[in-house]
Design a protein around this nucleic acid. Structure first.
Length: 197
DNA sequence: ACCCAGGTGGCCC
DNA sequence: GGGCCACATGGG
């Protein structure tokens, strides 16, 4: 995987925080069109320019800052992203978690998708599906992560596909049965809550 | 006119 | 350690 692709994946992981992917695509396209393809470009761009380019992905002031902080952090430790990602996962993960704007899901997404290491990514869909299907209830991020990781072959391709299947299943179910009262997976499902008329 | 989207940091107790 | 809130655009 080339440097540009890795960079786009890492930036996308940050930009997609609590945001629909279609909006992230616009922001990435803006960055690409404007020639900001490497972390060194991100680091050099003015804050207002960065904000304008990532605006379609929402939380644009926060995210512009997150991209800059990330770029500065990585380039402070390596000459380029690929080199930074070569470090062992046990070093890489805590290091990423220490960066402002990068939480557990974003860190794990970067490690799984950009570095291609077997680190299981837990997201809102994973938590919702697994807990509603009774595998665990309200587990912490790390508990849910360990639960899944310990039951799958330790390979990044497997983690990647499993995660994709969870997301696809959740979305498919939402489209297929909107507002189904007994739906165990549905986002808009409000078990035990009073529904507004 | 709502509700939602593959989170995170800050603050509070 | 958990609960609540701000952050913001685009689509249904």
């Amino acid at each position: 995987m080339d440097e540009a692709r890795r960079t786009e994946i890492a930036l996308g992981a940050i930009l997609t925080q609590n945001t629909a992917w279609t909006n992230v695509v616009r922001a990435l396209a803006n960055l690409r069109r404007s020639g900001l393809r490497r972390l060194s470009d991100i680091r050099r761009a003015s804050p207002s320019r960065l904000e304008r380019l990532v605006r379609p992905s929402g939380y644009f002031r926060q995210k512009a800052k997150k991209l800059r902080v990330f770029a500065e952090h990585v380039l402070g430790k390596a000459s380029k992203l690929s080199e930074y990602l070569e470090r062992p996962t046990r070093i890489l993960r805590p290091d990423l978690l220490g960066v402002w704007g990068i939480g557990p899901e974003t860190a794990d997404s970067i490690i799984l998708y950009a570095a291609r290491r077997p680190v299981f990514v837990v997201d809102a869909y994973t938590q919702r599906i697994m807990s509603r299907m009774g595998y665990f209830k309200e587990a912490s991020y790390d508990d849910a992560r360990n639960f899944c990781a310990s039951r799958l072959p330790r390979r990044h391709e497997i983690y990647n596909e499993f995660h994709a299947l969870l997301v696809a299943h959740a979305k498919q179910h939402c489209r297929a049965t909107p507002r189904c009262p007994g739906c165990p997976l549905l986002t808009s499902c409000r078990h035990g809550r009073s529904s507004r008329a």
